[in-house]
Design a protein around this nucleic acid. Sequence first.
DNA 1: TCGATACTTGAATGATTGCGCAAATATAAC
DNA 2: GTTATATTTGCGCAATCATTCAAGTATCGA
Lengths: 117, 117
Amino acid sequence: MKDDETCEVLVVDKAKVNHAREELEKVDIEKMAEFYKAFSDTTRLQIIMALTVEELCVCDLATVAGVSISAVSHQLRYLRNLSVVHKRKTGRKVYYSLRDEHISTILNTVKEHLDET
Amino acid sequence: MKDDETCEVLVVDKAKVNHAREELEKVDIEKMAEFYKAFSDTTRLQIIMALTVEELCVCDLATVAGVSISAVSHQLRYLRNLSVVHKRKTGRKVYYSLRDEHISTILNTVKEHLDET
DNA sequence: TCGATACTTGAATGATTGCGCAAATATAAC
DNA sequence: GTTATATTTGCGCAATCATTCAAGTATCGA
């Protein structure tokens, strides 16, 4: 009953396929992929990592990331929509910070993984 | 000495900027972003999550992810180049698995984070 | 009120990317 | 040898994306 069925975009091993499917049904793939995408661009990743240290205004974030004010602003909106960063306005300055410390934990887990290779 | 300099793509708070810069210099941003990108596409994420359960052949991966054989194969090459997956060939079938268990750890950390929102 | 500063926003653009398609490769069965 | 199966690969294109530019809003000092 194993490996004797043809493939043809059908199934080779039904049990394994169903097992894997169950695993996928438990999570919101779309949402997860979106979250990872937040970290998948160098500008956004630099913004996020800079904010693990401390709160920064838009102007300083642009300097740190080495891109234009407009570019950071666009990416900050992106990260705001994903609830990754938090906005705090004082006068005409806008300070950004990470919405919660889980982000730092995730960053460190990945950092350690990459160091081990 | 604080907040009294103009912005103009220069710096508002030099100390903070330098502090953030030091943090960024410690890591390879390019490499990290590339790693996150592996998880940022729904097809790739489905492949990776399916492989946390068990080894699967290309055909079954296509079924589980709900995409064509060609599409999975393209993405598997991508993941192979990033050393995320491992290839094992038996006869004319090719079985893929995750290269190490760190991946599962990372996936779980993020999964928990998203559940808490 | 006026001008300068700090940031946001929408449209335009060039680059990247995911996937379909068709051809190619590799292995197994006959 | 031929044929069928399983996967890989290069090309091309549509869709997505990151950034620039220019115009917009908001706040402060004069």
